[in-house]
Every structure is written in C-alpha cells, then in structure tokens.
Nucleic acid binder design. Structure first.
Lengths: 157, 157
DNA sequence: TAACAATAGTTGACCTCAACCAGTATCTTG
DNA sequence: CAAGATACTGGTTGAGGTCAACTATTGTTA
C-alpha cells in the first residue's frame, strides 16, 4: 500500500454521507479510529517483540502460556489453526523458552510449559508492552480504566 | 474450534504474570480486548460488505470517496500502495459506482467520483455498518461518545 | 527549445502470512 | 477392534502488500 503502513478495513471514514447536515454521527468514525488505533498497536507490538527477538506469533503465544497447556488448547486460545502451533512452539523451544512434556495419562498430548527463561522473557515482554504501546502511554489510569470498561462491555466475555 | 477466525497479535492476554499478586493491571488486557474487538468488527465489516456484494477493499474505498479524488490521494487515504488502487477502482467502475475523469489541467491525473448509484450504495453501506457492527450495537449514545473521545485522545489526529 | 527530471497511473511479478486440507503416527476409549 | 483425538508434516490457496518497470504527461533547467 502506500509504502509504509499496513491497513485494516475502514480507516479514516470520518467524512459524512454526502447529503446529511446533521451532527458527525460517529458511527463509522468510531470504527475508523478503532482500526487506526489497532494498526498502531500492532505495529508497536511488532517493534517490541522484534526487540526481544521474538516473532509476533511467538510473542502472542508466549503471552498465553501460564500453566501447562496442550498444543490444541493453545491453538484455540490464539484462534489459529492447530497445524501452525507446531512451528511456533518449535521456535520457542529452540530458544529454551518452553518445554514439551508428554502428559502421563494421555501420551498423545504434549503439555507446553514455560521454562524459567521463558517466564523471565514473558515478564520482560509484558513490561515492554506496557511501556511502549500507545494505548497506555497516552492515557492516565482513569482513562485506561474507562477504556477497559467500555471494551469489556462491547466484547462481553 | 480453531479454524474459522482470523487473528491479530495479542488477543486474550488477560492472564497475569506468574508471580504478581497485585491487581489485574489492565495493561496487557486492554491491548487484548482491543484486538478482540477489532477482529469482531473486521469480521462483521466483511459480512456487511459481502451482503452488498462488495469486496472489503472496495467497501473501504467507497467510504472514502466524497468529492473528486485522484487515485494517488485515494491510496494515501487508504494507506495502501497506489498500485493497488487501480484494481479496486476497476471493480467499482465495472459496477457503475465510480467514474474516472481525467483532470483537464493535468492530464496525468484521473479524478475518481461517485456516480449516483455509487452514492446510493455508499449510504446503504454506512447504514448497514451502523446497525450491524458490534461497536455501536452494544453501546448507547453516551458510551459511544465516551469511546469516541478516548479513541480520539489516543490516536490524536 | 531540447534534454532531463519528476509525477500519475497502470501492469505484472513476487513475497509473506495464515487458513485450509489431507495424510501419518501415536494413543485412548467404547 | 473400531472410532476418535492429538500432534506433526507438507502442500495448496487466497488475501494483502511490496516492488520494478513502463507510458503518458508535466515541470525544470542548461
């Protein structure tokens, strides 16, 4: 695209429908801003993970592992195809961040757990995200809480 | 249940770092929710445009055309490479939604304008988005204004 | 004015990413 | 044993985006 930014559907739709003289009806504009924000967050997310020498999918995965998880459950959490999980975990494993322990009861499943190194990196990653991602940087605690509440309401989960 | 949704970096990072007993510090969770929401909006956006037999990039483009715009400016608005514009506009043109008028002063540039049909479809698209996209459906006016304000603050433009 | 540089649009080749699908080996369960 | 689930492999596909040329036109400048 323009040569420097990746996009999502609906950025900058702020302009109004041709005839209407009513107020800016943020209907479409909210969607617009949302995508704008998401793009920036994504970009910054990539910068942060890159600085820790993690690929984006690896970082996403790392952030989801807390207790032992099967590959399948991990894939479900990340909403990606299970077949993609293997490669991601391979990468994390190669860096000594996770281990694959076969579950004793059911030796088909391999439980993924963080190593100590993995835990350390997960914590660093969280810290860097908190500092470097614009969602938080530009909002004070109150505003962030507000945004959080609204998002929760919209996403409802 | 892995195989039907497209993802973005960082969904559902809600869990806390292992050791910490402090409060849920929504730091990462906000990012998480944001991506979750964006994914849903994108998905619904695609559904709506599909119902109007528009491809997503076509719909995005349609929403940006209000006055006459050069291909280049359009590409800039959409933050995509100018080379992608051609095909998108081709599609819209084939459906009689836009026209390419060469600018008299500078015959290199082609000005894209909506036809009457194009204006009608743009309006319908806006309406459908307003109704069917979850950002608005689950929030009342006040809440939407709140979200709008916060997004504006974060995105700052 | 003739040569040169720059710009708008277009085309087409290429790359990446992730979903999708099928097949295999291993294991559990009825 | 048959059926089904887990993990892994590998191939295909499609959507996006990047990039390099090429044409036509305009602007600059020696």
């Amino acid at each position: 695209m323009t040569r420097h930014v990746q996009r999502s559907p609906g950025a900058s739709l702020a302009a109004m429908s041709p005839g209407s003289q009513q107020r800016p009806a943020p209907v479409v504009e909210v969607v617009d801003l949302l995508f704008e924000l998401t793009d920036r967050v994504k970009a910054q997310f990539a910068v942060v993970t890159g600085a820790l020498e993690l690929q984006v999918p690896q970082a996403r995965t790392l952030l989801r592992i807390n207790g032992p998880v099967s590959m399948r459950d991990l894939a479900a959490r990340l909403r990606c195809d299970a077949s993609n999980m293997t490669g991601i975990i391979d990468g994390l494993h190669a860096r000594g961040l996770v281990e694959r322990n076969p579950l004793p009861n059911d030796r088909r499943v391999k439980q993924v757990v963080l190593t100590e190194e993995g835990k350390r990196l997960q914590t660093r990653l969280r810290q860097r995200l908190a500092v470097d991602v614009p969602v938080l940087g530009k909002l004070d605690d109150t505003q962030r809480q507000e945004l959080h509440a609204i998002l929760l309401r919209v996403v409802e989960r």
